[in-house]
Amino acid sequence: MRDSSDDLVHDPKGGMPRLIEIMRRLRDPQTGCPWDLEQDFGTIAPYTIEEAYEVADAIERKAWDELKGELGDLLFQSVFHAQMAAERGLFTFDEVADTMSDKMVARHPHVFGDQSRNKSAEQQTRDWEAIKAEERAAKAETGVLDGVALGLPALLRAVKLQNRAARVGFDWPSTDEVMDKLAEEMDELRQSPDANARFEEFGDLLFVMANLARHLKIDPEAALRAANSKFTRRFGHIEQALAEQGRRPEDSNLAEMDALWDAAKAKEKAK
């Protein structure tokens, strides 16, 4: 017997109601998908993070034909979490959307309220932070660093922690002091007596690098992704050059590959 929701499930123009119904059906205890039924918030969270990175990857590559699908994958993660929450009586997807709408209206009184839009971007940023501080206080998050999510990528979380501390004056006045601290941490890493000390000092070094990025107004995650892309591109040139000779990287040596790397670098700079 055809389920009454089948028309919606198979409606190519069904929009959000269709997606929500598909998710409900996937989690139906009697007729749903065994894999989907086994999942919980913890098991789905890694997929949510992965999908967010795939959205960022499509944007970085300017793969606009892929972006729609990647955004859909990310949206599905929100629907999946909301469905599990609804099953527990916690909240629904509509409540998630309403919560976000309420937050955006409250945080933009210069758009949706009676405040003037005649503000600088800096003033709007200060107003935004003041509103968020009030929200954290309402959640009993009274510490300066409260509410910075533990699940963030470590580099991004470092920047957010430092930004919070900087708002109350705990910050180097210029990049000069950060550079000095960077040199200090490098020396401490060199002098580390054992593996545990190296681990700690390396973490300190990365933390200072994140601080330097913040002072230089550089997104360290984006900068590292760009460096990864550059490394991949130039190593690909090495592989291609060797393949033209019927060889692979393991058939070469460091000096030859380094020369091919320099050639790839020069070629890029020439462009």
Rank of each mutant, 00 (worst) to 15 (best):
H108W: 10
D176A: 15
S4Q: 13
E51D: 13
A227E: 14
S101E: 05
M84C: 02
K62A: 11
S116F: 01
N253T: 01
M104I: 09
I238R: 04
P220F: 01
S101C: 12
I20W: 09
S252R: 10
S116V: 00
D114H: 02
D262V: 11
L150F: 15
R88C: 05
Y47F: 12
D40W: 00
R18K: 09
K265G: 04
F41N: 02
E244L: 14
A223V: 00
A259P: 13
A227V: 02
E141I: 07
A264L: 13
K68T: 13
G14Y: 00
T43Q: 06
V148N: 11
V55F: 05
I238S: 03
D3H: 15
G72T: 15
T175N: 06
D219T: 01
G169E: 15
V168E: 12
G69T: 02
E54A: 05
P249G: 05
M23P: 03
F41M: 07
A121P: 03
Q124W: 06
K269P: 01
F93H: 06
E244A: 13
A158C: 05
K181P: 01
S192K: 04
R190G: 07
P173W: 05
S116P: 00
W261N: 11
H10Q: 05
L155E: 00
W35F: 11
H110R: 08
G143M: 14
A241H: 12
M23Q: 14
I218G: 01
R198H: 00
V159M: 05
G147H: 09
E95K: 14
E250W: 15
L145G: 01
P249R: 11
V79N: 11
P46T: 03
L152V: 14
A121Y: 08
H110K: 04
F170V: 15
L155K: 02
I20F: 03
A86K: 13
I218T: 11
K265E: 07
A52T: 15
D11R: 02
A210S: 09
P193M: 06
S192G: 06
R2N: 04
D73K: 08
N118H: 05
A85C: 13
F170Q: 14
R117D: 06
F231Y: 00
A226M: 09
E268V: 15
L260D: 04
R136Q: 14
F202C: 06
S252Y: 10
A149K: 10
E66H: 13
A154G: 07
M186K: 06
D251H: 11
K13H: 09
L216F: 05
S120I: 14
A130E: 13
I131S: 03
D194V: 12
W35D: 14
A264E: 08
A166Q: 08
L189R: 07
W261G: 09
G89M: 01
F76P: 01
R248L: 14
M84F: 03
T31H: 03
L150I: 13
K271Y: 08
T31N: 01
I59M: 04
E177G: 05
G147V: 03
D187T: 12
S5H: 14
N118Y: 06
P153Q: 06
N118L: 09
Q30E: 08
M84Q: 05
Q245T: 10
D57G: 08
D36Q: 07
D194L: 02
E21M: 10
A154R: 07
Q30G: 04
Q30N: 10
E201R: 03
I22M: 10
M257E: 06
P173V: 06
V148F: 04
E135G: 14
R198S: 03
T99M: 08
T48E: 02
E201N: 03
A140I: 12
Q77K: 15
